[in-house]
Simulated assay, not measured.
Amino acid sequence: MTLREYQKAIDALILALELADESSQRAPRAEVSEHLLGIALCMHGMAGQGLEHLSEAEAYYQQTQAIAEEYGLIEYAARALVGQGHTSLHRGALEKASDFYARAERMLEAHVQQLPGTMRSIFEGQGIIAQVLEDWPKAIALYRQADAIDTPIHDSRYLWLNMGHTLTYLGQHNDAEQYLLKVLDFATNFMDKETQALALFRLGYNEERRGELQKASQFYGRSSEVDEKSPEPVLGLARIQKSMGGSPVIISLVRHGYHLLCNASESPVYDLKEEWLTCLDFLGKETLQGTSAWVTRQIKNFPANSSYWSTPNRRHFLDLLNHLAVGAREPG
Rank of each mutant, 00 (worst) to 15 (best):
H173Y: 04
S223G: 14
E134I: 00
L15H: 13
L94G: 03
Q241R: 08
L260S: 03
D135K: 14
N206S: 05
Y76H: 13
R209G: 08
A47W: 06
L161Y: 10
I39G: 00
K242V: 01
L17W: 04
G257C: 03
S292R: 11
Y143T: 02
A16W: 00
R202I: 01
A130H: 09
R210L: 01
D192F: 03
K138S: 07
E5A: 04
E124Y: 07
L321G: 02
Y179N: 06
K242Q: 14
G290F: 11
N162D: 13
T195Q: 07
D155V: 00
G171E: 09
W136F: 04
L203S: 05
S55K: 04
G221K: 13
T296G: 11
D21E: 14
G221F: 05
Q114K: 10
H259Y: 05
H316S: 10
T195P: 08
S33W: 01
Q145P: 12
S243N: 14
A176F: 01
R255G: 08
P231W: 02
S23L: 01
G72D: 07
A216M: 04
R157A: 14
L108G: 03
T296M: 12
P331G: 06
G332H: 09
R26H: 08
E52Q: 12
L17S: 06
A216S: 14
S267C: 06
S224N: 15
E18S: 06
Q196P: 13
N263G: 10
E207A: 15
W294S: 05
A27P: 12
R157E: 14
S292I: 00
H316D: 05
Q126I: 01
M163R: 14
R144C: 08
W136T: 00
H154W: 12
E177T: 15
P152M: 12
V234T: 08
A216R: 10
E228H: 15
E275N: 09
A40E: 12
V249P: 14
S230F: 11
Y143K: 08
E124M: 04
R26V: 01
E124R: 10
G72S: 07
P137N: 03
K273T: 12
Q62G: 13
K242P: 07
E5R: 05
H53M: 02
E58V: 01
Q63N: 06
R314D: 01
D11C: 00
F282H: 08
W309V: 01
N206Q: 05
T188H: 14
P331F: 02
A102H: 09
L161P: 11
I122L: 08
F100L: 01
S24L: 11
Y258R: 10
L51K: 09
Q63W: 09
E105H: 11
E228C: 07
S23R: 11
T188L: 07
T2G: 09
Q63V: 00
T166M: 08
K242T: 02
